[in-house]
Structures are given as C-alpha cells and as structure tokens.
Design a protein around this nucleic acid. Sequence first.
DNA 1: CTGCGACCTGGAGTGCGCTCCAGGTCAACT
DNA 2: AGTTGACCTGGAGCGCACTCCAGGTCGCAG
Lengths: 123, 123
Amino acid sequence: MTTYAPAEASERTGLTLDTLRYYERLGLFGPVRRTTAGRRVYSDHDVAWVGLLVCLRNAGLGISDLQRLMGRLRDSGSSTGVVELLEEHRSRLHGEIAKMSVALDVLDGKIAHYREAAGQSKK
Amino acid sequence: MTTYAPAEASERTGLTLDTLRYYERLGLFGPVRRTTAGRRVYSDHDVAWVGLLVCLRNAGLGISDLQRLMGRLRDSGSSTGVVELLEEHRSRLHGEIAKMSVALDVLDGKIAHYREAAGQSKK
DNA sequence: CTGCGACCTGGAGTGCGCTCCAGGTCAACT
DNA sequence: AGTTGACCTGGAGCGCACTCCAGGTCGCAG
C-alpha cells in the first residue's frame, strides 16, 4: 500500500497542509497513521477519501454535512442512512444548478440589453 | 411611479431590512429617496434593481463583483465594460455548473456503491 | 555538530456576507 | 398626552471555512 508524506498528500489532493490537518481535526477522515516521531503518513486510502471530500465540497456540501456523513459511515454498517443523505444533496444540487441557470438567463438578457444600449449613445 | 416603504421593499425583494440597508451602504444601488424625517422611500426602479442584484448573487457573484459592475454603470455611459464583465461571469457560471455536474456524477456513483453495499451485510 | 527544511501543536486571525443591537426619532392611533 | 410600532444610525458580533503564526521537534546533508 502506497503512502504519502504530508507534502505529497497536499499535492495530490489539492488541499494545503493546513486544510488537510483541519479536515482531520474535524474528523472528516483519518485518523492518519504517524511515524514514531509523530509525523503524518497518509495512505492512498486517505488520499482517495479526501478526494471524495473535495468533490462533495465542490458540490456545495458544508463541513457539517460531511461530518454527518462521516458519522453515518463510521458507526455501524448502516450505509442505509448514507444513501438518503447523498440523495438529498443530489436533489439540492439539482436545485442549485436550476437556480444558476435562471441567473444565467437573466444575465443573457442583461447582456443583450446593454449590448443594444452600447449601440446608441444614451439610454 | 409606485413607491415602497422599507417593509414592503423587503418583502418584494426577499431581503431583510438590514441587508437592504447594507447593500445601499455599499453603493450597490440607490441612493434611495427619503422622507423629510429621513425614512427611506424605495422606488420600483430601486426594487427592480435589487432584484437583479439578488439574481446576480444567486449566480455566485460576490459583493465586490457587484460593486465593480455598479461602478461601470454609474460613471459614463460606458455600458461597454459591463457586457464583458457579465460575459466573464457567464462563463464562470458555466464552469460552476460543470463542476457541480461532475460532483453530481460522483455522488451518483457513490449512491450506487452504498446502495449495493447495503444489500450485503458488510463491506 | 550544525544547518536546514519539513513537519508538529494549539490557538489566533482573516474575509465574506450578513445579522443584531442599543439608543434614538417619528407618525399614527386611542 | 401616551403608547405603539416602524424606522433611523453606527458599530459590534457571528458562522463558515479556512489560513497563518510562534515556538518547538525531527532527520538528514555537509
């Protein structure tokens, strides 16, 4: 099993060392193995997991959402609640996209409007 | 020209009184007319304008983006820069949506994964 | 043995976008 | 005249998600 020093884990996940530690502190992943000297040794499992975290954050989930999710996954093999949680966020995500699309349309309208206005000298 | 008391403007825009005042302070719209006693009287032009602001915020534009936009619109009839600004954000918005779609796909994958896992007792 | 750089910790600081508050004014109702 | 209640101001406070920092430890190269 491949392992990574902090710097490399940072590079692979795209998160800073600080953020990596921050996420670990919050229990979003880990606990991460340590050397006898106390230095972190990330497994590729850790790195993959963080990849998922990043993805979910991109999807607009907040830290507390992720914590809840981790809670579900940790205690019990109750993967059951997890599916609902994810699906809930899936639909939320759809809503977000819809909202953005509306904004996009309005934006298009405004662009057309101002482009037209630019043709004439004044309003 | 219809006018609105603060409470009604709040209702129509969906923003709180505080947020309305906040946006005004930042110069995102206005200046709003006042009664002799100093109370705000919003015009329907104000309200419509705030509607656009809300929409742009939904689209993910930050306060500073909006300020820059207002700057362009205020000084000069240079509606020119405005179009570019909006188009830039339009493409940014597309990017966001794309990113979210990716997250959505990953989410779907995970849901499938956990749903399957729920079928068996353990990993 | 001395540097040096990567890493450690706990905690303070940052930027954003509001949100709340105290203390005051004003208009209308009873 | 008194009592609401909507509104005013300037400024403090908040929640989120980091981000930075001081002060210290470790391991290796020279």
